[in-house]
């Protein structure tokens, strides 16, 4: 009776959280008092949100079940209600049940879990590649498929931000990509380990010196999507945000033409070879 009421209470609580989420969850950046994941702007993030909600139901149910059991024993088996303790110490059936049922729940979780994992890790044929290099404490982006220009992206400080640009997230030069195109991101670290993350795309991949990592996303909505460095990288770890500007295909082509001129590489070829040698992939 009590147990049933408690499970119902837990289900209602989850339902309220779920209903509140779309209203509270930010797209591309967090919003005040947000409870859940950021809104999705990519197919992978759609699946992450679905899978997280699926897990949330299961774990709320389990935690609620244990809480209900504890409340029942506290009420029924306290010294006043039950002065003579039983001597039961074994019950083979129930011991088998509480071993097998959790196993079945885990198998039930594993199926969608693997589906999501394979979606994330099987990188599809990409329309363009962007290379993100983590440095203390900013990101550099290069576009090997679009003329191989490279530029730095630094956090805007106090007084540099325009109206509406979020503190600690807005940058001077955003990484720009076209909407609905599959973008492959390759990352590396120039000094220590950093991590490239954009919550609304459902991606996070470490940028490690001496290694090249890759991930991918397909942004389904135009806009600016923010993330933050997600591996402790020293003093200003909190101040090297990631900003991805998703634009239409035409706007992207126009931006590429501008960027080629604006960020033209003017170093001598020799120094570029040295720079390449420092980032020796394994």
């Amino acid at each position: 009776m009590l147990l049933k009421r408690l499970t119902m209470l837990a289900a209602t609580a989850v339902a309220i959280l779920e209903a509140a989420e779309p209203a509270l969850a930010g797209l591309g950046q967090p919003s005040p008092w947000q409870l859940g994941l950021q809104q999705s702007a990519s197919p992978v993030m759609d699946d992450i949100i679905w899978f997280h909600d699926f897990l949330l139901y299961i774990i709320t149910g389990i935690a609620g079940f244990v809480l209900a059991l504890l409340i029942v024993v506290m009420l029924r088996f306290n010294a006043r209600a039950n002065p003579i303790p039983s001597r039961t110490t074994h019950n083979t059936l129930i011991e088998i049940a509480w071993t097998l049922i959790p196993m079945m729940i885990l198998m039930f979780i594993a199926v969608p879990s693997f589906k999501l994992l394979f979606l994330q890790l099987n990188v599809p044929a990409a329309d363009l590649t962007v290379k993100a290099t983590g440095k203390q404490w900013y990101w550099s982006y290069s576009y090997p498929d679009n003329g191989d220009f490279e530029f730095d992206s630094l956090m805007l400080k106090e007084g540099e931000r325009k109206e509406g640009q979020p503190r600690l997230l807005a940058v001077d030069n955003e990484m720009v990509v076209p909407v609905n195109k599959t973008v492959r991101v390759i990352t590396t670290g120039a000094d220590v380990i950093h991590s490239f993350a954009v919550p609304s795309f459902g991606i996070k991949i470490d940028a490690i010196p001496g290694r090249i990592n890759e991930t991918w996303f397909t942004a389904t909505r135009e806009g600016i999507y923010y993330g933050q460095c997600s591996e402790l990288c020293g003093k200003d770890h909190a101040f090297m945000p990631i900003a991805v500007h998703v634009v239409s295909e035409q706007a992207f082509s126009a931006w590429v033409e501008d960027a080629k001129k604006k960020f033209a590489r003017d170093e001598a070829p020799a120094s570029r070879a040295v720079a390449a040698a420092q980032l020796r992939p394994q």
């Binding site: 503190r167 933050q228 770890h237």
Partner: peptide, 15 residues
Amino acid sequence: LAGMPRRIADYPDAF
């Protein structure tokens, strides 16, 4: 869940 990284001394205002 909202995306706040750990080990940061200052955070975006939404947090």
